[in-house]
Design a protein around this nucleic acid. Structure first.
Length: 397
RNA sequence: GGAGGGGUACCGAAGUGGCCAAACGGGGCGGACUGUAAAUCCGUUGGCAGCUGCCUACGGGGGUUCGAAUCCCUCCCCCUCCA
């Protein structure tokens, strides 16, 4: 148990905002004195069944609080999710049924508990309380905030100025989220940087409902593997914490070198200084190893690294190549098979057009030999190792 | 209720009768390079057909035309302004 300053330092590491700092100190002290754990809230969107490394940042922060003896409260936005798209300007993301949400949450929890301490975690669904509000209650809630204050939000201000639409729902959304804080009596709310405004409204609304306002802690949004946009599943530039180690390793090796620092800093406990002087490739290998160890264990990480070295550095075939049974009717009377048929049957290409294209680009190898022409019949003598590009393999049998 | 703008491939966005399977950018894929699935550069990016022929495609449906993403009718959807 360190001093408050030491604790604070750990809490503050890697945060974007901590508002207000002195209230956090007061809350921590109060908790120490009374032995009453603080309630640390994190809202989660149930539409995403997979957790990404981006999610891991606030979750890791929550875990820190748990290690300090506090309670993590995961608030599943099932009610808000059923109402519709919070971002408004995009088309609705498809409404989900309660059942789908429950299912997502099961897999979600399983993943979240790789980071969190289940003993100190409460999972709550916001339909528990939002579903009970009457229209009068909603009006009351809405009366507690003004349009002017809503328009303080950068995104709203901009759209308002540019005559772009803002739906009323979008005003209700932060209020609903703020009400969640009232309902779970949050002492602290965690969130991504983009949530700052919403979290701040939570403070005002809690005050209106006679509660002590929560302290808000935001963490930066992690840049995705493309090095440009925030990590998100819809964009596809993500690494899921539940992904097979091999995939994680590959994706992490593929991040732009410029991201190495942030990934070490926000996703691992390894100080960046330790790898600062390594060549980027080696730093990334270590990064991937660290992260996979966290979510799959050391053995899996070692295996994944070995596999990567094997395929990409030594250019050997992977240790396990999936087998594909070839439909014998493709084998001609003379016992040969046309490469195009073989490629398509092996499932490595989506169409025969792609098969031809990829051959003409020199990307196809059969039994380690590059195929130079699409007019190739080869003896069907299984097993045949088929390779497209650097990393797609299949064994035709 | 009125006026106007718009719906194009995975995404963004050009194209307003044939030269359009559709510019350009992003993404994806392949190659070169690199002891990285990084960066950079080059190529490629609807399907079928084993030699350039067919099919599907520019919000849906119908029509005009030798020929339509482009013109007309109609329906659906989105947006802006005025009320």
């Amino acid at each position: 148990m360190g001093s408050i300053e030491a604790i604070l330092k750990r809490i503050e590491a890697g945060t974007a905002d901590l508002i207000p700092r002195e209230k956090l100190i007061a809350k921590l002290n109060h908790s120490l004195e009374t032995g009453k754990p603080l309630r640390v809230k994190l809202g989660i969107d149930p539409s995403a069944p997979h957790l990404t490394l981006g999610h891991s940042i606030p979750l890791r922060k929550m875990r820190l609080f748990q290690d300090l003896g506090h309670t993590g409260v995961l608030v599943v936005g099932d009610f808000t999710r059923r109402i519709g798209d919070p971002s408004g300007c995009l088309s609705a993301r498809g409404l989900m049924t309660q059942e789908e949400i429950r299912q997502n949450m099961e897999t979600y929890k399983e993943q979240a508990f790789k980071i969190l301490n289940p003993e100190r975690t409460e999972v709550r669904y916001n339909s528990e309380w939002l579903g009970l509000l009457t229209f009068a209650d909603v009006i009351e809630l809405a009366s507690k905030y003004t349009v002017a204050r809503m328009l303080e939000r950068d995104d709203f201000a901009k759209r308002f100025a540019e005559n772009r639409p803002i739906s009323v729902l979008e005003f209700l959304y932060p209020l609903a989220q703020a009400y969640d804080s009232v309902a779970v009596k949050a002492d602290i709310e965690l969130g991504g940087n983009d949530q700052r405004f919403n979290l701040l409204i939570g403070r005002d609304i809690q005050r209106e409902y006679g509660q002590e306002p929560q302290v808000i802690i935001t963490v930066p949004l992690l840049i995705g593997t493309d090095g440009v946009r925030s990590m998100s599943q819809s964009v596809g530039n993500y690494v899921g914490i539940n992904e097979p180690p091999r995939e994680m390793f590959g994706k992490l090796m593929a991040i732009p070198d410029s991201l190495i620092h942030d990934y070490f800093f926000y996703l691992t406990d390894v100080p960046y200084e330790e790898v600062k002087n390594l060549p980027p490739r080696d730093a990334k290998r270590q990064l991937a190893g660290e992260i996979i160890t966290m979510y799959h264990g050391k053995e899996a990480a070692d295996a994944a690294r070995e596999e990567f070295d094997r395929v990409h550095i030594r250019r050997e075939r992977p240790s396990e190549v999936s087998q594909v049974t070839i439909d014998r009717s493709l084998v001609k009377d003379d016992g040969t098979i046309w490469v195009i048929d073989l490629l398509q049957a092996s499932g490595l290409v989506k169409s025969r057009g792609e098969a031809k294209r990829v051959i003409s680009q020199g990307g196809v190898r059969i039994n380690d030999e590059r195929v130079s022409s699409i007019d190739l019949d080869l003896p069907f003598d299984p097993p045949i190792l088929v390779q497209v590009g650097k990393r797609s393999f299949a064994e035709a049998v």
